[in-house]
Design a protein around this nucleic acid. Structure first.
Ligand SMILES: [Mn+2]
Ligand SMILES: [Mn+2]
Ligand SMILES: [Zn+2]
Ligand SMILES: [Zn+2]
Lengths: 133, 133
DNA sequence: CTCTTTTTAATAATGATTATCAATATTAAT
DNA sequence: ATTAATATTGATAATCATTATTAAAAAGAG
């Protein structure tokens, strides 16, 4: 089924690409709503799914966590906050190196792929640790 | 809060430990039901959660729809079937080596941990590939 | 045994995601 | 440009996994 060119789809991808962060569907919905106020959350979900099938969007999913989406599809790596679930890019040579090794290993074992995610606590959650009140 | 010794909790852990597979809460519920027919699914969920907090059970939150649980808590690694979501143990020296490296890296970066998921297709799904009808 | 605490079964509630569907928009064909 | 075929939308219902609630039962302490 060929994707047609709709305003909704275009804006969803456009707004996602503007973001440094990795929003959930509902976070992106709130942003897109500013430009298309009557858009439905289901439309955002539907399009993120289609775009990720088409390889224009990365879907970061883990059981028990809300899905998050990434407009950058070039190969790069992620850290997830262990307490709030937010995801950030990580640029660290050793992380890159381990991923390279995994590429090779997965290839050699004839597997489909892998998913490596580092866990940490994000800035915001660290601040809360300081002053818990 | 100290855990008391209930029949339900004991049997849940006992049955989980008997399994080679990594069941979802409802799969384990069906098994435990044979011994305690009136047990509730919520009890299974509650106890798996408590047992995993207590370190007697591993909770596997990988990609997929449902959490899976593991009665073996010694350090070991998993492959997940990309199509049905089933999880199996993997015993491969190189996989172990990469995990060791990740332990070190995570330690060095001062992070909380990591989640590495290897993806493949399980036997059952491979068979289906053969005769799709 | 008696009091206090914890757990249970049953079931309702929740939250994220997906499905349904009639109305509308996009694309392809004339 | 008109029309026919196809895809998409917004609204909302449904689903599914999981968690919360609660009165009754069981377990632990003394
Ligand atoms: Mn990213
Ligand atoms: Mn295992
Ligand atoms: Zn955080
Ligand atoms: Zn499978």
């Amino acid at each position: 089924m060929k994707l047609s060119n709709t305003l909704q789809r275009r804006i969803i991808l456009e707004e996602l690409r503007k973001l440094e962060c990795h929003p959930t569907a509902d976070e992106l919905y709130e942003i897109v709503r500013k430009r298309i106020p009557q858009i439905s959350l289901a439309t955002v979900y539907r399009n993120l799914e289609l775009l990720s099938e088409g390889g224009q969007v990365l879907k970061l999913q883990q059981t028990g966590k809300q899905k998050r989406f990434d407009g950058r599809v070039e190969s790069h790596y992620h850290v997830r906050c262990a307490s709030c679930g937010r995801v950030a890019d990580i640029w660290d040579d050793e992380v890159i190196a381990v991923n390279r090794q995994l590429d090779v290993l997965v290839e050699k074992l004839g597997m489909e792929g892998y998913m490596l995610e580092l866990n940490d606590r994000c800035e915001k959650c660290r601040e809360k640790d300081e002053k818990p009140e």
